[in-house]
Design a protein around this nucleic acid. Structure first.
Lengths: 345, 345
DNA sequence: ATGAAAGCGCTAACAA
DNA sequence: TTGTTAGCGCTTTCAT
């Protein structure tokens, strides 16, 4: 196994000082073209590449972003991860992944581990951390941005869709579609996405003079969602909802399967189903799910932007709470109103 | 922003030497209980945690594993990533993610970047690297294991399912099911998974006195797969296959949708469909896909095992090529033989 | 523009 | 068991 090539060896071979080598590999440094040539040549011959860790030690910037993630089974997250990683790679950063097994205390432990790696920033996807921890991060000068979770508190930024507006629009859409018995299957109450979507949905119904006809809880979990759907629809026809908003697409698929194959209902003839996220399977024709699109690319762009703004000026940049509009994607799983969007007047 | 707490500060507060502090945080080191107590107390009061990067510099072990990934849209990979990350976390390692945009030359560039981070090992998921590069890795003493890709060459390990045996069993299953016109929709030829599955499938058919009735190419891409299915089945009924093996589930969903909704065929009455991977949506009732299960947990376990074996003894451990048996998961998308598995004699 | 020198925070001999 | 002493490979003053 070949010894590691250091800048010193390159320096010797190029007949310059070690710091000259460093300068050649430091973007804005002051070096003559002649030195650059000599060093680049020697480096190429030796197969030299700067040691990122050593650089990180002395410069204090690791160019590593820690990502805390809990559920990769909701296909919104792999999509976001791919975009995030690509986007950061373009800016010279890389993503160090930390899986947070749902446990609450666990998350804090995970974040501490992240800090040990001297990351330049942290992105948490769908997980909350204690306010203690976020203070620790702030004190360490490590910016944190919550992705897909709104957290009002402690100097952390957050990027979400406008979940309230999304829930509201879905309510309008279902009411405009002539539905009379509109139900909701909730996610996990600990998540701001769940709370905002439900609040928006209820508000939208109220505005139209409607109220929730039935309510179930799916906890963002497929099995819970299926059970909730079964309980909600295993009743005599008159008591059965004619439309249901499921808090995310991931659960909506399970609900649709249960309605069709478990209970023999037709979608949308017997019941309309709408979801939230617009993950790839929502467009698969077997589901063809009407849903609110979370624009992962925009959300990630805002996340990266917020992160880099803080990394640039540790103290300067204010934390921000971004809510990105989610467009309604109309497909075939819900009855479509005669006129949509609603006409003025 | 609070200054970073170093081991030296802890040492001063605890009234011991800096190396004593280091020892307290080094698992197998020789320290008295008294010292441990003093140091732990001081560390807690100061909020000290060892700097992983500094440790990496001097010890030469970063406890970072580089992961190169290309397609997160095939849901086999998020699943594998989650398991991999969890498993490594348990052993004190973490995953640094590198997205490889399909480009060939790109992969090599990505791997060089990885090396810059002084990773202790590299896992490539569904991507191949040049033999030059793998030599570089070997010389750098960084073990590489290909996940879900078999690469005979240059001292890298690989972990896959037994794709040949899997393809073969699928052929037996379809023939036993009484199918007469059996087709195949291929993945990307550059992938060993594609080649082995097809070879096994053809071998299995041949053993039963059958030959491939039709062949299309999906390139592991949803749009290609859909087009291939359309071309293959848009013919007069007699020329239409009565069964098709699609090289992975990801494509199989698109094929099923095209057959059902594009061409009005019934599955499995008009045509049986089988896939490979057993990703979560395969179990969704709308697809209910008969498929070979890639046991992600076992594959990951072998991957981690191979990796750590090499990290333990840089030169000692031989590279290994592991092929894990894939069980057939029988669901409803293909006609089931009267007797299965085939009886002796 | 360049080199010398001083560390970044830590581990690992080596003595004691 | 403990402290002392060297570095790990690099960036960054500070002179020149």
């Amino acid at each position: 196994m070949v010894e590691k090539v250091t800048s010193l060896q390159v320096a010797e071979r190029a007949g310059v000082s070690q710091s000259a080598v460093s300068r050649v590999f430091t973007p804005g440094a002051s070096v003559s073209q002649k030195t650059v040539d000599k060093v680049r040549k020697a480096a190429a011959e030796l197969g030299y590449r700067p040691n990122v860790l050593a650089r990180a030690m002395v410069s204090g910037k690791s160019r590593i972003i820690g990502l805390v993630v809990a559920y990769l089974d909701n296909y919104f997250y792999p999509e976001a991860l791919e975009i995030l990683s690509n986007e950061l790679q373009e800016k010279g950063y890389h993503v160090l992944v930390f899986m947070a097994s749902q446990t609450a205390g666990n998350i804090d432990a995970v974040v501490e581990e992240i800090l040990d790696y001297q990351v330049d920033g942290i992105v948490t996807a769908s997980v909350a951390m204690s306010s203690d921890l976020s203070r620790t991060c702030r004190q360490a000068g490590v910016p944190v941005v919550h992705f897909n979770r709104f957290e009002d508190s402690h100097g952390v930024s957050s990027v979400t869709s406008d979940n309230f507006a999304g829930g509201r629009e879905l309510a309008q859409f279902l009411v405009a579609g002539g539905h009379q018995k509109i139900a909701y299957i909730a996610g996990w109450e600990g998540a701001s996405t769940q709370r905002d979507r439900e609040a928006g949905f209820r508000a939208g119904l109220a505005e139209q003079g409607h109220a929730l006809f039935a309510h179930g809880v799916g906890e963002f979990d497929v099995d819970h969602a299926r059970a909730a759907a079964n309980a909600m629809f295993s009743v005599k026809p008159d008591d059965r909802p004619d439309a249901v908003f499921v808090a995310n697409d991931h659960m909506a698929f399970a609900v649709m399967d249960e309605l069709r194959f478990g209970l023999g209902l037709r979608i949308p003839e017997d019941v309309s189903v709408v979801g939230f996220d617009d993950v790839p399977p929502s467009a698969w024709r077997a589901y063809d799910l009407t849903t609110m699109r979370q624009r992962a690319n925009l959300m990630v762009a805002e996340t990266v932007d917020a992160l880099l703004a803080h990394i640039g000026n540790p103290r300067e940049a204010a934390t921000r709470q971004v809510a990105i509009p989610a467009p309604l994607i109309i497909r075939g799983s819900a009855r479509v109103p005669d006129t949509w969007p609603p006409q003025e007047g």
